[in-house]
Each structure stands twice: as C-alpha cells, then as structure tokens.
C-alpha cells in the first residue's frame, strides 16, 4: 500500500500508518513525507501548551467542537511523556476527546515524547505535516505538560496559546522568561476557581511591560471554564483573529519560511552527524582518539578538534 498516496486520497488508515513509520524513524516514512509535502501548508496550526493538569486536553476537546461547528476538519496531535526508566508511556489525552472518535472530520493521534525535550516529540512536526496534507483545516497540537522552558511549540504552531490556572504562584512567576514569552493568546482555565482574576491581572501586568513593535499584536488574556464549555467561542474567535493578523501583516509567511529553514538546518545537522559518525567510526584516527580519551591522554575538546581537522567537506 502506498501510504502517502492513500493518505492524500483521504484514507485515515494510511495516514495513521504513515505517521507510525515516521515516528519509528523508518526510511519509508521519509519517502512518504516527500510525496505529501507539496500538499501541506494549508492548515492552520495551533499549539496549546501549559502545565500538567491545566485542562489542556479538555480545552482541545471543546475547541474541536467549536471548529467542527464552524465546518472545519480538525486534526489533533496530543503529547504525553515517556517514562525515563521503561521508555513506556500512558497516552491519556484521548480520554477527554473520545466524543469525537466517530466524527470523520476529526483525527486524533497520541504521541509519546520518547526522551525528546522541549514539549513535543521528535516526529510531531512530521505528523502535523501529514494531517495538514490530508486536508485537516485545523491542526491542534497539545504539548506535554510543561514547566517553564519547553517552548519548541512556537517552531511548529502559527498561533500558540499558553494555558494557566489559578493558584500556581505569585506575580514574579508571570514575569519570568520562557513559556510565558511565547503565548500569542493566554488562557486562564478553571476560571470559576478562587484567584482566577488575580492570575488574569498578573498576566496583563506582565504583558503590558512588553514591547510588541515587532509583531504589532498584544496577546489577549481569556478566561475559560473548559469543563463547562465557557469562553470557548471567544477563544476560537481569538485564534482566527490572530491568524488574520499573521496573514495581513505578512508575519505568517515569514514564520513559515523561518520554520522551513530551521527544519532544513536541523536535518542537515542530523544527517551530517550521521555521516561523520559513520565515516569516523570505522577510521583508525577515531579509534586512536577514543582510546586516548579513555586513558585521559587527551580531553574531549582537543579530540573533537583533531577529528574535525581530518574532515573533508565536499559540496
């Protein structure tokens, strides 16, 4: 079965299997990706990130409902952590989204981080491309529950929403670098809880201190109660408003270009490393250097420099 072609023809089975191949790092997956690539680039990619238990999955569930109501097909990639000990994972984000399981306009794929840091898994970007090429208008990516520094979602999403909830810390938490800098939209979920207005105020104060001259977009702070579907219409409106802003200012094109360049550079890095590793692995010089390292006759910096001196690059 030609998974790429079948996926483009709308086969969920083929799309799912292509994503699995990509996740396993199978070369057949890459061949499939090459084939679908020209068909991608249409979807609106939305990232949902925030700490564990903030309600990300429930929010995604309600966002799906709202977009479906507006006639959009929705693909979802939901990420949960892999165990650092067993490598296994419990992928439980679906639990909140199962009402959409039999809706043909919705495709939900769970992924484990598999040791990848940054809030996504290594194959998330590729999986998002597959869903995009399959014709899902909206691709929602729910990151693993994050702390302060897992900001990789901005490389993938056009619009990133950061979910906060009441009772997570004082106003200095909101001023720190990292995740709170990446939000295009801020969501205070579980807004029926005590302290939600404080969180909204802290976020607004933090946002007022920023310089928006580069994007001309001041991130809104929205209150939601996902479990009661409150605030979801306004949230989806905000997603679309941000999307319109990105398109009308040309920022979207720049972001997509930057992303493609980043993707390309990462691939070059990965492939170059593989090539060097394979070539150097069998070389005498490499064996000598590792031996010298073991005996502490040299240090890793000098060893790497020596190896690089023997490297010839042909373009």
């Amino acid at each position: 079965m030609d998974y790429a072609q079948e996926a483009l023809n709308g086969s969920v089975l083929a799309g799912a299997r292509l994503i699995r191949l990509l996740e396993e790092g199978d070369p057949a997956g890459i061949e499939g990706l090459k084939k679908i690539y020209p068909h991608a680039g249409q979807a609106f990619m939305i990232g949902i990130t925030g700490p564990p238990g903030a309600g990300k999955s429930t929010l995604v569930d309600r966002i799906i409902t709202e977009f479906r109501g507006r006639g959009k097909k929705v693909g979802v990639i939901a990420i949960d952590p892999s165990s650092p000990f067993s490598g296994g994972a419990i992928l439980g984000d679906r639990v909140r989204m199962q009402r959409h399981a039999t809706d043909e306009g919705v495709f939900v794929r769970s992924m484990a981080t598999r040791g990848h840091l940054g809030g996504l898994s290594r194959a998330t970007f590729q999986a998002a491309l597959v869903l995009d090429a399959m014709g899902y208008d909206i691709v929602l990516v729910e990151t693993v529950g994050v702390g302060q520094d897992e900001v990789e979602i901005v490389d993938l999403a056009h619009t990133t929403a950061v979910v906060s909830l009441p009772g997570m810390g004082d106003d200095i938490q909101a001023m720190k670098a990292g995740i709170l800098e990446i939000g295009d939209i801020f969501i205070v979920n579980k807004a029926d809880r005590v302290g939600s207005d404080d969180v909204v105020r802290q976020l607004q104060v933090m946002l007022e201190m920023r310089d928006y001259s580069a994007t001309n977009w001041t991130p809104p702070v929205l209150k939601t109660i996902a479990s009661k579907s409150e605030g979801i219409i306004e949230l989806v409106d905000a997603f679309l408003e941000h999307r319109d802003h990105l398109v009308s200012t040309g920022i979207l094109d720049t972001r997509v270009e930057e992303r493609e360049l980043h993707f390309f550079k990462e691939l070059v890095k990965e492939m170059a490393y593989e090539k060097i590793n394979t070539a150097a692995g069998g070389a005498k010089k490499y064996a000598m250097l590792t031996e010298a390292l073991k005996k502490r006759e040299t240090d890793p910096y000098s060893a790497a420099e020596t190896l690089m001196e023997h490297l010839k690059v042909d373009m």
Partner: peptide, 11 residues
C-alpha cells in the same frame, strides 16, 4: 507502560 509499551488509554 512499565514494561516499555506505549499505551493509548481511551477511558
């Protein structure tokens, strides 16, 4: 999961 499987749990 502890045996290294990825388990998709539906609830």
């Amino acid at each position: 999961q502890e045996s290294g499987f990825e388990v998709v749990y539906t609830g």
